[in-house]
């Protein structure tokens, strides 16, 4: 009995720890967003609560004195374009690397993943040359072109292991049941890969939203900035940090992604591919 209570308490304790651990950044952002600057900068105040009445001045600053909504829209625009390119390239690449090429496929897959490990801090120098040759400086299209260089390898790798987990027999069955290789991919493997594809969509979008260096190097106009550089370049003026607006901007931008993770991933990954093949 005691053992049962202890294990239950241990479980709840662990759960509570992780809830606090993952929720606290959001909480800090939320209260900072509504804190008066006077309250925030006074070191004797308790940093975890509102010591003075809340204020909407930071939110107002964010939406009226910066191009915050434009940053959001730019990010969405680049994100959607990059996600489309990534899915279009990663799905066939992952499929052929996982299935057709055999041992070669594995090595090639590792090779593709290795390209992901070359840091953007190195790559942005040659890439900026390419961007200028193409005449894409200071254009969102530069990002649409450059971001797939890291989203495609990463997502191909991710999807490759996912497709590998779909039993080969199911695909062979489709070949026998009248499909061509392409038909088997479209009619059987793709529907079974939906959880994997949703995963790469979310990851690709998150990678784009988080990206900093390329955006900083290739974009100068405020109206063309994405959220990552927009906030930090427009809300840090000289040595003045507009903490309230910064936190607000970061929080608002992270909510949709957090929701995406919460609702989609767990749900779809579990269950679908199970229960057909008995081993």
């Amino acid at each position: 009995m005691l053992k049962k209570i202890l294990s239950k308490a241990g479980f709840c304790g662990g759960l509570a720890f992780f809830i606090v651990f993952s929720a606290s950044p959001f909480y800090i952002m939320l209260i900072t967003m509504f804190k008066k600057s006077h309250d925030l900068f006074n070191p004797t105040n308790n940093p975890f609560i509102l010591n003075e009445p809340f204020t909407a001045e930071h939110v107002k600053l964010l939406f009226t004195q910066t191009l915050y909504t434009t940053f959001l829209l730019n990010t969405l625009y680049v994100g959607v374009a990059v996600v489309l390119i990534t899915v279009a390239l990663s799905v066939p690449a992952a499929f052929s690397l996982a299935r057709i090429a055999g041992r070669w496929g594995e090595n090639l897959g590792i090779g593709i993943f290795l390209t992901y490990l070359i840091p953007p801090t190195l790559l942005f120098i040659p890439l900026s040359r390419i961007i200028s040759v193409l005449g894409l400086q200071n254009s969102l299209w530069s990002l649409v072109l450059v971001y797939p260089t890291f989203t495609v390898p990463f997502c191909t790798w991710l999807l490759m292991s996912f497709i590998k987990s779909i039993p080969r027999e199911i695909e062979e069955q489709a070949l026998i049941d009248g499909c061509s290789r392409l038909g088997a991919l479209v009619k059987v493997i793709l529907p079974l890969s939906v959880p994997g594809i949703i995963t790469i969509i979310v990851f690709a979008f998150t990678l784009v939203a988080n990206e900093y260096i390329y955006a900083l190097a290739f974009i100068q106009d405020s109206a063309k900035k994405t959220i990552g550089i927009g906030l930090t370049t427009e809300l840090v003026r000289g040595d003045v940090f507009y903490w309230g607006a910064l936190m607000g901007g970061a929080l608002i931008a992270s909510i949709p992604v957090a929701l995406l993770y919460t609702f989609f991933l767990d749900r779809i990954i579990s269950g679908l591919a199970m229960g057909t093949v008995r081993r």
Partner: peptide, 17 residues
């Protein structure tokens, strides 16, 4: 395979999940 007029039952049954 699709044009051979054959059908196959796999050991694992390979049903479409």
């Amino acid at each position: 395979p699709r044009e051979r007029g054959i059908a196959m039952v796999f050991q694992s049954y390979a049903l479409y999940p």
